[in-house]
Simulated scan of single mutants.
Amino acid sequence: MRAVIGFTLATAVVLSGAACSSGDDPPGKQPQGATAGASASPSPPPEHPFTGRPTAARRPVLAVKIENTSAGKPQMGLRSADIVYVEQVEGGLTRLMAIFSSKLPAQVGPVRSARISDLHILPQFGKPALAYSGVQTKMIPFVQQASLFDVSDSSAPNAYSRVPGRVAPYNLFGAPRKLLARAPQASKAADVGFVFSDQPPAGGVPQKAVNVRYPAARFSFTWSGAQKRWLVTQDGAKDMAAEGGQQGAPTIVIQWVKTDRSQFHDFHQSYTPLVHSVGKGTGVVLRDGQAYRVKWSRPSEKEGTTYTTADGKPMPFARGQVWVVLASKKPVSP
């Protein structure tokens, strides 16, 4: 993160304007060009709380755990996600948790196992559906008590299939519509603290690429002016999608978090990291080819995360998919 350390944020400038009449028209006479019985313009549709894009309805929330090593790539369905969380797992590697609501792909995967950090991130979405493939035996009671609907491969086997040409366990894919059909009471999308604007604030520092390191994984986010997205490169290779094109998003949030050793281990006896997504901290938001220093705050697990600039104003994201990269300034060795 040396690429963005040391810049200064200026005060964001918010411009507003209002139309006013001269008040010179005589009583009973309509202004020139007015039409009798004309009504005010219809209000624009509300924004989706996860993407800032217009939406006519709020749909249920589905979270999916997705493999994020070379063995599981190219990933499928990830480009349709509203939010993508990057979390550290055993061995210093990373795994993704993709949040779907506004758009559902036909398939998503490879679907992999859940982690304890997921159970601390998910309560802000109410009681969403969680798609995953297994957990450690000691963690089963935690999942059962969590605020979620279990649509794992053992709970909803008919919503999953094995994709030919891929090696197990990296060949398990889920069908989002079938998964949500098994969780009809799943919470609908609601505010999780994000703020959106077409106009980036002042105070950003131009950046072509920003790097983030985990103990055993390297990410690079490179701005594409042509695509208006930050394109993802991992471990020196472009992160391509199974549907075509490179993974990426208009907004990347690099959120510095505390990472501890949890009580869980994998079968290699590598500890499972516990990522602390509740509390306060600092970070960097990337949008429109610029980097902004921010502060983040999440008072409790049931509340969303807010991001503010140096002057204390909400940091507006660009509309579209958002990646939240949960990284530690001082990564704990595996």
Score class of each variant (00 low, 15 high):
Y214Q: 01
L180Y: 10
A186W: 07
K188P: 00
P201E: 00
S187H: 05
Y170I: 06
Q227C: 10
D198M: 01
A202T: 10
A183H: 12
A189N: 05
R166F: 13
D150P: 08
S161Q: 14
A189K: 04
Y170L: 13
A186L: 07
A190T: 06
P206W: 03
R182L: 09
R166Q: 12
Q207E: 09
P215V: 00
A217L: 03
G203A: 03
A146D: 07
A190G: 05
R182V: 12
A216T: 06
Q145C: 04
N158S: 15
V232T: 14
S154G: 07
F196V: 10
Y170W: 14
G225Q: 10
F196P: 01
P184W: 02
T222H: 05
A156G: 05
R229V: 14
D153N: 14
F219K: 00
Q207P: 05
W230Y: 14
S161P: 04
A156K: 08
S187N: 03
S152F: 04
P200M: 03
Y214R: 00
N158T: 15
F219M: 04
Y214L: 01
G225M: 08
V192F: 01
G193L: 00
P200E: 01
N171I: 05
W230V: 10
G193D: 03
S224T: 09
A159D: 02
F194R: 08
V167K: 15
P176M: 10
K228H: 10
S187D: 03
P157M: 12
P176A: 09
D198F: 04
S155G: 09
A202P: 01
Y160K: 09
S154C: 05
P201Y: 00
F196N: 01
L231A: 08
G225R: 07
Y160T: 14
R218D: 14
S224C: 12
T222G: 06
S224Q: 09
A175I: 14
A189M: 04
R218F: 10
S147K: 12
A217N: 03
A190E: 01
A146F: 09
F149S: 13
V205H: 13
A209D: 05
S187R: 06
P200R: 00
A181M: 08
Y170T: 11
P176G: 07
F196H: 01
V163T: 14
A209H: 02
Q199C: 09
L179C: 12
R182Y: 08
Q199I: 15
P200V: 06
A189V: 15
W230A: 09
S147D: 07
S224F: 10
R162K: 11
A217C: 06
R213M: 03
S155P: 07
Q207T: 05
